[in-house]
Computed example of a mutant assay.
Amino acid sequence: MTHTIDAATLVHLQTWQGNSEVLEDLITPAPLRALSATLDRDDPLPVSGTALPPLWHWLFFLPHHRQSEIGADGHAKRGGFLPPVPLPRRMWAGGRLRWLAPLQVGDVVKRVSTIESVTHKSGRTGDLLFVLVKHEVHNLQGLCLTEEHDIVYRPAAQPSDPVPAPVAAPKKATWQRDITPDDVLLFRYSALTFNGHRIHYDRKYVTDVEGYPGLIVHGPLIATLLVDLLRRHTDRPIRSFEFKALRPTFECADRRMLRVCGEPDANGSSIRLWAQDHEGWLTMQATAELG
């Protein structure tokens, strides 16, 4: 087991706590049309005043780093707003969101992002570094959305790494939908979110350099598919959503399927959601609270 986060390094990385940035954007209809098509939805064309569906704010406030600022993994080079963590593998581990007011096409919006914490743990395969980022999204009327975003950094894979035991997905699901997470779907979502991370589209890189068996399905895409499943079964507004990635989901070079599932409680106000891979293993779990 190799540790690369010593006490001095951790203290240095924790100086990023409290770091903040402000980004501004305009909610425009074109990304909404594109994501609707990517999710295989038959939505009416968005116009000024159309409500932004939950999680679709991830189409905005996109990083626009210059090409010379991109690192070997396709992300921006370490440093800047996020700390320069010396661990090569970076994943979106989960998040918690709460909607306070609607966002709409035509809104001028601002996102204030703050690094809340930088914490270290020792896992079975070495160091784990967790960065918690809090986002607050405002339109001209005030605060509309709060989001806590969990990022985890991990060491490079080694042949001797222990493999975590998978967890079986629940057997009962009132709602479910099967999706083919092929490389075209992954490419379209990467393009929509201006995400250059090579683990989602460069099969040689993800297998040879990061040691995964195939392209990795974006965590935010799976979360979006879970919320999309909910939206296909109820028109009630989502007040909060919490999700956690438990196991990587890989693209279906061999026609694997991703299944998204939902189980509402007795009054339909709280929805348990999860994703499972082609072997029935749980890959993401989530909870949504409805208005």
Rank of each mutant, 00 (worst) to 15 (best):
L39G: 02
P46L: 05
W56N: 05
L59D: 05
T50C: 02
K77T: 01
P46T: 03
I70A: 13
W56I: 04
H64I: 00
A51M: 15
K77C: 10
L59S: 06
D42E: 12
P63N: 10
K77M: 15
V47R: 15
H75P: 07
L55F: 00
G74K: 03
D40W: 04
P44Y: 08
L59H: 04
E69M: 14
D40G: 13
G80V: 04
S68E: 15
D73L: 01
F81N: 02
F61G: 01
E69C: 05
P54T: 11
K77H: 08
P54Y: 02
Q67D: 12
S48E: 14
L59P: 13
L62M: 03
R41H: 13
L82K: 09
L39R: 09
G79H: 11
L52M: 04
A76F: 10
L45M: 05
G74C: 07
L52T: 00
F61A: 03
P53I: 00
T38L: 15
F60I: 09
K77R: 15
D73R: 04
P54N: 02
T38M: 07
L55E: 04
L45G: 02
A76H: 14
P46H: 03
F61T: 00
H57N: 04
G79K: 05
H64A: 15
G71A: 12
K77E: 12
G49Q: 08
H64D: 10
F61S: 02
W56E: 02
A51E: 12
L62G: 11
L82P: 14
T50G: 01
L52R: 00
S68K: 08
L55N: 10
E69F: 09
D43C: 10
Q67H: 08
H57R: 01
L45Y: 09
H64N: 04
P44R: 08
P53W: 04
H57K: 01
P63Y: 07
L45S: 05
F60H: 01
A51P: 08
A51F: 08
L52D: 01
E69P: 06
S48A: 13
D42R: 11
G80A: 11
G80H: 04
L39Y: 12
P54L: 08
D42G: 07
A72L: 07
F60S: 01
L45K: 06
Q67E: 14
F81E: 01
R41F: 06
R41Y: 05
L45F: 04
L59G: 09
G79Q: 03
D40F: 06
P46W: 10
W58V: 02
L82I: 15
P54C: 07
D73F: 02
F61H: 02
